[in-house]
Design a protein around this nucleic acid. Structure first.
Lengths: 215, 215
DNA sequence: TAGATTGTTAATCGATTAACAATC
DNA sequence: TAGATTGTTAATCGATTAACAATC
């Protein structure tokens, strides 16, 4: 119904940030906010904020501003956070466990119902009440349990294979932490967190700032 | 010397990706590559690749292409990966430990020399041969040991305080994993990994793809 | 009503792509 | 030399910002 014209990536990346600030305003008890006030807080121009929001509907009131509670709810709905997602994590090493615990702690609808690993020493362990299963049964499990999201925390070499199993099993989205660009069909959502890319960008920024000082 | 005109964020984000693919080509024994071939592999247009590279110098040879080894080295240099960084991690919970181990494993110059936590039960533990210190001594340690990078893995509430200590101690860059937009002076590099933002973007993408199917 | 602020169109800016001359 | 491919300028595209009419 909403996105007849595709939403640009730039807007998609700003949406979760709007959500964060609106959540913060809620805890502060703020009831209404204008695009100008929000601009000061979040750092985008007021114009951009109004443009962004109007991509999805008319949430404000002329001469008044936006109701914080209402806007927060709308953005949750736009982001698809008004429902629950059955989630599995594949690869229960350090990062996998951290993500599992993180998601467990921060979860707002991302229920980790299954854990998978290839290491027989780890299979059978229980983390946050969920038993670690052998990765060989992944595809069948995804299909049977109608899993929505797979979180890939295995190494680079095994990541594409795991992604293939997830796709065959029928997941709707993949959250990838392996340092590789996965190939998935067009109807499967893919979001990758490339930690090393991020660290290398930091390194570049450090170098740039050092160079600036030399001027 | 290099960036008289500021390098756009879009380019900065592509640089680590060039590095990844060039590293891959190296392991495959590929000696030379043209912007067209690289385009096919990495998914950027050949034109964009040439534009990006020429921001930093002339690395190719007309009529021939680019030498993989040389280009890889150049990009490492551009990214600032031709040196070592003394790094500390603050907050040794699940995520902090995962990042510590990850960095330890993937390190190419990011040496984790110090770990800090506020929890007395964790202080004194040893992880990868590094002892966990009390966060109260952070600033003094940063200054004394001339630490380059601080990795923030504490919760939202304590993140800005830790960042302030890091800045006062004199770090050059901060890698932040807390779900908050930190404020740091202009001469300190800041790179944040907002895991929940990333997960929410995934949620949005899943919803978008579901909506597309309804057409 | 007058003042404020949105929703939306128009103008600007920056990034990407195309084209081609330079040159290996 | 001829063919290939870079380096670089020009054209296009898309995203951001400015402006303002609509309206609460």
């Amino acid at each position: 119904m909403q996105n007849r014209q595709k939403v640009s990536n730039a807007i998609i990346r700003r949406l979760p940030r709007y959500r964060r600030y609106l959540g913060y305003l809620q805890t502060k008890g703020v009831k209404k906010i204008s695009s100008n006030e929000l601009s000061e807080l979040i750092g985008y121009t007021a114009s951009q904020i109004r443009q962004d929001l109007n991509t999805f509907g008319e949430f404000g009131q002329q001469g008044y501003g936006y109701e914080v509670d209402k806007l927060y709810k709308e953005i949750n709905r736009i982001l698809g956070l008004d429902r629950e997602y059955k989630t599995v994590v594949i690869g229960v090493g350090n990062l996998g466990q951290a993500i599992t615990n993180y998601s467990y702690y921060y979860k707002i609808g991302f229920n980790i119902v299954g854990l998978f690993d290839a290491n027989p020493k780890i299979v059978g362990n229980v983390i946050n009440d969920v038993e670690v299963m052998d990765v060989s049964g992944l595809e069948e499990y995804i299909e049977r349990e109608k899993i929505d999201i797979g979180v890939i925390c295995v190494n680079r070499e095994n990541a594409q294979g795991v992604a293939d199993s997830l796709v065959k099993g029928g997941v709707k989205g993949i959250w990838n932490f392996a340092p590789i660009d996965l190939v998935v069909p067009d109807d499967v959502a893919l979001e990758s967190v490339h930690l090393s890319d991020s660290l290398h960008a930091l390194s570049f920024l450090i170098k740039s700032k050092a160079d600036e000082k030399k001027d």
